[in-house]
Lab assay of single mutants.
Amino acid sequence: DEVRLHVNGHTIEFRGIDEEIFKILEEAAKRGADEEELRRLAEKLLR
């Protein structure tokens, strides 16, 4: 299960996240989070 999030012209792939987590990451990206911040956030949410 892989999703792709487009951030500042880059595509970031995440594996094993559900739609709810994806929406949180998408919102963070809209607020200016970079790839590293998004990955840290995803790790926290998946715990």
Rank of each mutant, 00 (worst) to 15 (best):
D1T: 06
D1H: 13
D1R: 10
D1S: 13
D1E: 12
E2P: 14
E2I: 15
E2T: 15
E2S: 10
E2L: 14
E2G: 11
V3Y: 15
V3L: 15
V3K: 15
V3R: 15
V3P: 06
V3D: 06
V3A: 06
V3I: 14
V3T: 07
V3W: 15
V3E: 05
R4H: 13
R4L: 14
R4T: 11
R4F: 10
R4A: 11
R4G: 06
R4D: 04
R4Y: 15
L5E: 03
L5I: 15
L5T: 02
L5F: 03
L5Q: 02
H6L: 09
H6V: 15
H6P: 06
V7L: 06
V7T: 03
V7Q: 03
V7H: 04
V7P: 02
V7W: 08
V7Y: 05
V7M: 06
N8T: 04
N8K: 04
G9T: 03
G9K: 02
G9P: 02
G9V: 03
G9M: 03
H10D: 04
H10S: 12
H10E: 08
H10K: 10
H10W: 04
H10G: 07
H10R: 03
T11L: 10
T11E: 12
T11A: 07
T11C: 11
T11N: 07
T11Q: 05
T11K: 03
T11W: 15
I12G: 01
I12Y: 05
I12T: 02
I12Q: 02
I12P: 01
I12F: 03
I12N: 03
I12C: 05
I12V: 08
E13M: 12
E13K: 07
E13L: 14
F14H: 01
F14C: 06
F14S: 00
R15N: 12
R15V: 15
R15M: 14
R15W: 14
R15S: 12
R15C: 10
R15K: 11
G16C: 04
G16W: 06
G16H: 05
G16A: 03
G16V: 04
I17C: 03
I17T: 05
I17Q: 02
I17Y: 05
I17P: 02
I17G: 04
I17F: 05
D18H: 07
D18P: 14
D18R: 05
E19K: 13
E19H: 14
E19A: 10
E19V: 10
E19Q: 09
E19G: 12
E19I: 09
E20N: 11
E20R: 10
E20V: 12
E20M: 13
E20H: 14
I21F: 09
I21V: 08
I21T: 09
I21R: 04
I21N: 13
I21S: 10
I21G: 11
I21P: 00
I21C: 06
F22H: 05
F22Y: 13
F22V: 10
F22T: 05
F22K: 11
F22P: 00
F22G: 09
K23H: 11
K23L: 10
K23Y: 10
K23E: 06
K23G: 08
K23S: 10
I24K: 08
I24G: 01
I24Q: 11
I24A: 07
I24S: 04
I24L: 11
L25W: 01
L25S: 00
L25P: 00
L25M: 03
L25A: 00
L25T: 00
L25C: 01
L25H: 00
E26G: 08
E26K: 11
E26I: 11
E26R: 11
E26N: 13
E26H: 08
E26C: 05
E26F: 14
E26M: 06
E27N: 08
E27W: 13
E27Y: 13
E27M: 07
E27K: 09
E27T: 12
E27R: 09
E27Q: 13
A28T: 07
A28G: 02
A28F: 13
A28K: 04
A29K: 04
A29P: 00
A29W: 09
A29R: 03
A29L: 13
A29G: 05
A29Y: 09
A29S: 09
K30S: 10
K30C: 02
K30H: 09
K30L: 07
K30R: 13
K30D: 06
K30I: 11
R31F: 14
R31A: 13
R31T: 12
R31S: 13
R31V: 08
R31K: 09
R31N: 12
R31L: 14
R31C: 08
G32P: 01
G32K: 01
G32M: 02
G32Q: 01
G32W: 01
G32R: 00
G32N: 02
G32L: 01
A33E: 04
A33S: 09
A33W: 11
A33V: 08
A33N: 03
A33R: 03
D34M: 10
D34A: 07
D34G: 09
D34R: 08
D34E: 10
D34T: 11
E35H: 08
E35F: 13
E35A: 06
E35W: 10
E35C: 06
E35L: 08
E36L: 02
E36W: 14
E36S: 13
E36F: 08
E36G: 14
E36V: 09
E37T: 14
E37P: 01
E37M: 11
E37Q: 12
E37F: 14
L38G: 00
L38N: 00
L38C: 01
L38Q: 00
L38D: 00
R39Y: 11
R39K: 09
R39V: 09
R39N: 07
R39Q: 06
R39M: 13
R40I: 13
R40T: 11
R40Q: 08
R40V: 10
L41R: 01
L41G: 00
L41E: 01
L41S: 00
L41V: 05
A42M: 13
A42E: 04
A42D: 00
A42R: 01
A42V: 13
A42H: 10
A42T: 03
A42P: 00
E43H: 08
E43R: 07
E43D: 08
E43F: 05
E43A: 11
E43P: 00
E43W: 09
E43G: 03
E43I: 08
K44E: 14
K44Q: 10
K44P: 00
K44A: 06
K44H: 15
L45W: 06
L45V: 03
L45F: 06
L45C: 13
L45N: 01
L46Y: 03
L46I: 14
L46F: 06
L46T: 08
L46S: 10
L46D: 04
L46P: 01
R47G: 15
R47L: 12
R47Y: 14
R47K: 15
R47C: 15
R47A: 15
R47P: 07
R47H: 15
